[in-house]
Amino acid sequence: MQHITKVYSKAESLSSLKEMITKELKDNNLNPADCIWGTSICSDEINNSFLKVGEDFKGPGPFFFGGISGLPFTGKTGFGAFSSHIPDEGAAVILYGPHVGVTKDGTFGKVLREGQEEPSSSCGSLIAGLNNVKAGNVLNISHNDYQQGQVHKVLIENYDDIKKADNEIIATTETGFNQIKRELTDIIGAGLENLGTKPLLLVGGIIINTDWDQDDYFEIRDISWFNK
């Protein structure tokens, strides 16, 4: 944990995140059981530990906005669909953010997965994108790897700042957070009419993956309400 808090000083357990969301909803006279939820996080199965946060929401959930890296690839159409699923007297919650691994010895960008002897990349998409940019690979947004092409594009646009950082992986994760927040906020803003008068709670941050036999963490960076 000390390796995590040196970088993410406000990191908390997923149980604490769940408690915070429940309190935020109840402080606004909403019950989690009347809410549906969505996520804009990376497709990596390691992030399924995050599903415990939504145990008290209505329906099986969540609605997945994110593809690899966590960018909200479902766009305005996805948000329109999600909005149409909100219970008549209910609300919605969306959790978003990139993820980054940290091993027990404090190596960022890697995590030991169950059944493997050596750590592997986390977030694999962001780290692969960073390596492509550093290698000078030409941007190629193709139909058979469209999402990673978009990740590569974002990192090209932000590489001047990333390469100045003390830790490029942590800086790349920050770039991912900023991009997910920007895109998701734009999508919601452009589709507010889909919500009608129903409230939406948006919670963003950094997911911190740990080795498979340890608990994951989340550092909250943003709490925003729409229609409140």
Results as ranks from 00 to 15, higher is better:
Ile21Val: 15
Ile21Gln: 08
Thr22Asn: 14
Thr22Arg: 12
Lys23Pro: 00
Lys23Cys: 01
Glu24Ile: 15
Leu25Asp: 09
Lys26Asp: 03
Asn28Met: 05
Asn31Asp: 15
Asp34Ala: 07
Asp34Thr: 11
Cys35Gly: 15
Ile36Phe: 11
Trp37Gly: 14
Gly38Asn: 10
Ser40Met: 06
Ser43Leu: 07
Ser43Val: 06
Glu45Cys: 02
Glu45His: 07
Ile46Asn: 10
Asn48His: 14
Ser49Glu: 14
Phe50Tyr: 14
Phe50Ile: 13
Lys52Met: 14
Lys52Ala: 13
Glu55Thr: 10
Glu55Arg: 13
Glu55Leu: 12
Glu55Tyr: 10
Asp56Ser: 15
Asp56Pro: 02
Phe57Thr: 15
Pro60Lys: 13
Pro60Val: 13
Pro62Lys: 11
Phe63Thr: 08
Phe64Ala: 04
Phe64Ser: 04
Phe65Trp: 05
Ile68Lys: 12
Gly70Ile: 04
Pro72Ile: 05
Phe73Tyr: 13
Phe73Pro: 00
Phe73Trp: 01
Thr74His: 00
Thr74Leu: 06
Gly75Ser: 07
Gly75Lys: 05
Phe79Asp: 09
Gly80His: 02
Ala81Gln: 07
Ser84Cys: 04
Ser84Val: 03
Ser84Tyr: 02
Ser84Lys: 12
Ser84Met: 03
Ile86Asn: 10
Pro87Gly: 08
Asp88Glu: 12
Asp88Lys: 13
Glu89Ala: 06
Glu89Leu: 04
Gly90His: 08
Gly90Ser: 07
Gly90Tyr: 09
Ala92Lys: 13
Ala92Pro: 10
Val93Thr: 14
Leu95Gly: 07
Leu95Asn: 07
Gly97Asn: 06
Pro98Arg: 12
Pro98Ala: 12
His99Val: 03
His99Ile: 01
Val100Gln: 13
Val100Met: 13
Gly101Leu: 04
Val102Tyr: 04
Gly106Ser: 08
Phe108Tyr: 15
Phe108Ala: 03
Gly109Tyr: 05
Gly109Cys: 07
Lys110Trp: 02
Leu112Phe: 04
Leu112Met: 05
Arg113Tyr: 09
Glu114His: 08
Gln116Cys: 01
Glu118Gly: 00
Pro119Lys: 07
Ser120Leu: 07
Ser120Ala: 10
Ser121Gly: 00
Ser122Cys: 15
Ser122Lys: 01
Cys123Phe: 10
Gly124Gln: 10
Gly124Leu: 08
Ser125Thr: 09
Leu126Arg: 08
Ala128Thr: 14
Gly129Asn: 11
Val133Asp: 05
Lys134Trp: 01
Gly136Leu: 10
Gly136Gln: 11
Asn137Gly: 02
Asn140Val: 05
Ile141Cys: 05
Ile141Ala: 07
His143Arg: 11
Asp145Trp: 03
Gln147Asp: 14
Gln148His: 15
Gln148Lys: 07
Gly149Met: 10
Gly149Asn: 10
His152Ser: 03
Val154Gly: 01
Val154Glu: 14
Glu157Ile: 02
Asn158Glu: 15
Asn158Pro: 03
Asp160Leu: 04
Asp160Tyr: 01
Ile162Ala: 05
Lys163Glu: 14
Lys164Cys: 03
Lys164Ser: 08
